[in-house]
């Protein structure tokens, strides 16, 4: 790393300072928007400088400095924390039924089908739809294909999370149908099939 751009080191220092500032800001007795803002601003500036210095490599290296600083602060917090008497959360996650509760296996199975296979199909169609749109917009094949390969897991993860946040089946079906239909339509217009 002998020829690393100075901006990467400055960016890394910015990220370290950002974590230290956030540590200070979040430890204040009252919330301070200014103190928080300085922390987040330092993080943004640090990341931008590292990116400007050596591109994605610079950003990746600098971010490791920020995370390592946080890990050291956490280690210190864990080491110095007194033995407490705090009561742990008992919030129910509703994953398994308690005694006497119905199992609702059908409902659980349907949720699984919606979140895993169907969300995958919707994400794939949407990603391919974006690829078709990219082709129509004049993007290169490399950019279009790589975008589709990136979007497939990203959209699937977002859909899986979002589906579990929706209380009604109708809304869940709509959330899957809209990107799937849009993607399929775009493939028909801009694809080879």
């Amino acid at each position: 790393m002998s020829e690393t751009a100075p901006l990467v080191w400055i960016g890394a220092a910015g990220l370290v300072a950002a974590v230290l500032q956030l540590r200070r800001a979040w430890g204040l007795p009252r919330r301070s928007a200014a103190a928080n803002g300085i922390g987040w601003a330092l993080m943004l500036v640090g990341a931008a400088l590292a990116l400007a210095g050596n591109g994605a490599w610079g950003l990746a290296v600098a971010s490791l400095f920020g995370m390592t600083t946080a890990a050291l602060l956490l280690a210190h917090a864990g080491w110095t924390s007194p033995k407490g008497k705090g009561r742990a959360s008992d919030r129910k996650a509703h994953m398994l039924p308690d005694k006497g509760e119905p199992r609702r296996l059908g409902r659980r199975l349907l949720t699984f089908v919606l979140t895993i296979p169907l969300a995958f199909v919707a994400a794939l169609l949407a990603a391919l739809g974006v690829r078709a749109l990219a082709g129509m917009a004049g993007w290169s094949e490399a950019d279009g294909n790589a975008t589709a390969l990136l979007l497939l897991p990203l959209l699937w993860g977002i859909l899986a999370f979002w589906l579990l946040m929706l209380p009604r089946r109708g809304a869940q079906c709509a959330l899957l149908a809209i990107p799937a239909a849009a993607g399929f339509g775009l493939i028909l217009v801009g694809g080879a099939i």
């Binding site: 956030l22 979040w26 956490l74 917090a77 864990g78 924390s81 008497k85 009561r87 742990a88």
Partner: peptide
Amino acid sequence: RDAFRLRARDNHGVGLADWHNR
């Protein structure tokens, strides 16, 4: 907000939850 609080020596699940969340 709690990102720097690690009650590592708490029993009854507090410490475990802190490790997980932090």
